[in-house]
Amino acid sequence: MLEAAGVSQEQESVYRLLVTAGGATAHDVSRRTHVSEPESTRVLEALVHQGLASHNDGTPRVFRAVPPDVALLPRIKHTADALDTARGEADRLLEAYRETARRHDAGQLLEVITGAEALRQRLRQIQVNAREEMLWFCRAQYVAMPSGSNTEEFDALARGVRYRVLYEKPFFDDEGAVDNVVAGVQAGEIARAVPWLPLRLAIADRSVGIFPLVPGGPEGSPEQPTTALVRDSNLLGALVALFESYWEHAVPLHLSETGDLAADDTAHYPALSPADGKLLSLLVAGVADKAIASQMNLSRRTVQRRIQNLMERAGAGTRMQLAWQAARRGWL
């Protein structure tokens, strides 16, 4: 059991005897383990050499175990650190191997999926394997997954995967669509809506995505979907950028006090204080933080802190997004 710490089974057996006996001579060890006394002496001296045991200078010598927290825990920590380093290097080598494979084999980057059932299985698979975030474009008239059938989303949300889902407005005309979106939002989904989406899209952990290669009809129609699964590449990066662009301009959806699905409206946004309004106007006008601080008699750090507060209040990840949200909310 202690082999990972560099202790052989033979040495571990003798070390355990010393721990439980409090001390023992080579003769004692030989008698209890049924091993010759010279062999017992060899094992005991090996334990001393490894810092697992000590002995007195008497005759015969009495060997005692060094406490496990002193003898073993540092060795185990060192081994664990070495394993972590090796694991990190193995991950880097694996990524280099995959990168080389992708460059020489397009099949490593793009996989064609034909048919609704195959698409449904892949959509479920990437959600089961997702660890951090799922990005979705949801269009009207499902092709593979009827609204409400994606139980993998709820499982993923329960284990901490973040879901950001964009719905085009015609999607809500599908039967049961609104109730299913409400259930998703209640479970933790972050939902937004746009008038129209250019394609269907699902991206897991920004490392794998699924999107249609050619338009496909609703499930059951003669026009079966032909989709592509794309892995880490410039194409996937472009799809992520497309999602973020639509997400930035989408209207957030939330649950009202009655539990109904509602879109955020600018009329519901509290107005800014005069000071924050002035700061925001200067920021949008392109005035540098240092100049804003000078004009408003504030420290530069205070200006940056107030800008960060405004970004959090607007749900913006960048200053550019803050400017757009400020215009949409009537803050300018």
Score class of each variant (00 low, 15 high):
119 L>Y: 03
96 A>L: 10
260 D>E: 15
264 D>M: 06
139 R>G: 13
318 T>P: 13
211 F>R: 07
63 F>I: 01
217 G>F: 00
298 L>E: 08
271 A>K: 11
176 G>Q: 15
149 S>I: 03
193 A>T: 15
127 Q>W: 03
237 G>M: 14
41 T>C: 03
216 G>T: 01
315 G>N: 08
104 H>W: 05
303 V>C: 00
20 T>V: 11
257 E>Q: 05
280 L>V: 05
105 D>P: 00
13 S>I: 06
145 M>E: 02
245 S>Y: 04
140 A>Q: 13
308 Q>N: 05
173 D>W: 01
173 D>C: 02
15 Y>D: 05
227 T>E: 05
24 A>K: 10
311 M>D: 00
45 E>L: 06
298 L>M: 14
121 Q>A: 13
290 K>F: 13
139 R>C: 15
109 L>I: 13
49 H>D: 15
313 R>S: 06
141 Q>C: 04
175 E>K: 12
15 Y>I: 12
142 Y>S: 10
51 G>H: 05
288 A>R: 04
168 E>S: 10
86 A>E: 09
222 P>E: 06
243 F>L: 12
39 E>T: 07
264 D>V: 15
265 D>N: 14
152 E>I: 02
226 T>W: 08
224 Q>G: 14
301 R>G: 07
54 S>D: 11
47 L>S: 14
272 L>F: 01
179 D>P: 13
166 L>D: 00
142 Y>L: 12
231 R>E: 10
325 Q>A: 11
239 L>M: 11
83 L>Y: 02
207 S>R: 09
298 L>I: 07
134 M>H: 05
300 R>D: 06
172 F>M: 14
298 L>R: 09
258 T>A: 10
272 L>E: 05
73 L>N: 02
302 T>P: 00
90 A>V: 11
199 L>T: 14
236 L>Q: 07
169 K>Y: 01
156 A>C: 06
8 S>D: 13
77 K>S: 09
150 N>P: 00
210 I>Y: 03
313 R>N: 05
196 W>D: 15
28 D>S: 01
290 K>D: 10
182 V>E: 06
41 T>G: 10
167 Y>V: 04
